[in-house]
Design a protein around this nucleic acid. Structure first.
Length: 301
RNA sequence: GGUGCCAUAGCUCAGUUGGUAGAGCAACGGACUGAAAAUCCGUGUGUCCCUGGUUCAAUUCCAGGUGGCACCA
């Protein structure tokens, strides 16, 4: 039986190392579920696996696309499933690692299909949001999709805008596309995650950010500065430097904010993963125990 | 050694004419279906330094202690 082993956890916990050792043990390859490491233009700020790491085990979806490509969770689902189908022709076990919660869910459960959104429409709604306010969009949504209107977070512009996009694009309510039925996969899924005490995690995060700074994050961010409007650059580590380049904050402040925002990101990840009872948790130094657990679980399937 | 000032949340500080307290930052919890490292919602977490005194009641007033800072020797 084919098994997809998921190794996730908060940022900076040590997923890369655990995934590489696991993949080596099972003599297989790694599929990345990281919404930022996929971009070839980003390296320092996303802490991509090192060249040595990349050489020791074959990785997928690392530096394979450009920040100019339009990539999202649904696209990732399609691509990842296609890749996994082909990998499972060669391997019984494949490792999926990364911290992008929605991307992992896209592979495990799938995302309901909605039509592609015309970029002009998206832009238009963005302008409406800025000029006429959220309430204006909310009223439109109320008319077009009563059902979703009642369940959506009415204070969240991203949700309102997306629902409206779909309604206007298709002429059908957004809720009619939301099946929320997990898709069947042709492989088993084994979910594992790493975590440690919060104070330790914060120390790891702070160290990692300091490392990024000495590895040239500022220079990388400066190269990206002209492209700041692209969604992939709305990312911790870059946007704080953009503020610094704008003269809005000091460099010291920018670095402080990168640390804080990374901590908050880690917390958000933990909230998401904790909520999924299918995860079995390990400490970052328990890689051997993790591998043993995977081996035994696969045997018993 | 002497004198003065200070001691309240993780940090910086406010406050209580005596009725056990609140801001900013940090932190913490939650939502999440095509932007997800995105977007949004929520929450004070406290031996008010210690001991004794006055008082119905002390974080607040008084005394002593401890620690910190400043100045004088």
């Amino acid at each position: 039986m084919k098994t997809l082993v998921i190794i996730t956890g908060p940022t900076a916990i040590g997923k890369t190392k655990a995934a590489i050792e696991t993949a080596k043990y099972f003599n297989t390859e790694i599929v990345s579920a990281d919404s930022r490491q996929i971009y070839k233009e980003l390296s320092v700020g996303t802490a991509v696996p090192s060249p040595a790491d990349m050489e020791s085990v074959r990785h997928h979806f690392i530096h394979t696309h450009s920040i100019h490509d339009s990539i999202n969770a649904s696209w990732y689902e399609t691509e990842a499933i296609e890749l996994l189908e082909s990998l499972f022709l060669k391997y019984n076990t494949v490792v999926l690692t990364g911290g992008s919660m929605l991307y992992i869910d896209a592979v495990c459960k799938g995302i309901d299909i909605v039509p592609d959104i015309d970029p002009e429409l998206r832009k238009n709604l963005k302008v409406q949001l800025e000029e006429k306010g959220l309430e204006h969009l909310r009223l439109q949504l109320k008319k077009l999709d009563q059902k979703y209107y009642q369940q959506v977070d009415l204070k969240n512009p991203a949700r309102i805008v997306h629902a409206l996009e779909v309604c206007l694009m298709t002429g059908k309510p957004y809720s009619s596309f939301r099946k929320a039925e997990p898709k069947k996969r042709s492989f088993n899924i084994l979910k594992t995650a790493l975590n440690c005490e919060r104070a330790k995690l914060h120390t790891r995060i702070n160290h990692r950010v300091d490392e990024m700074i000495s590895n040239g994050l500022e220079e990388e961010a400066l190269r990206m500065f002209p492209l700041r409007h692209l969604n992939p650059l709305n990312t911790v580590g870059y946007r704080e430097f953009f503020e610094y380049f704008d003269g809005k904050i000091s460099k010291v402040k920018a670095i402080e904010l990168i640390k804080r925002n990374t901590r908050r990101y880690a917390r958000k990840q933990l909230t998401w993963f904790r909520n999924d009872s299918e995860y079995t948790w390990f400490r970052p130094e328990e890689i051997k125990k993790l591998i043993k657990f995977i081996e035994i679980t696969i045997q018993n399937q």
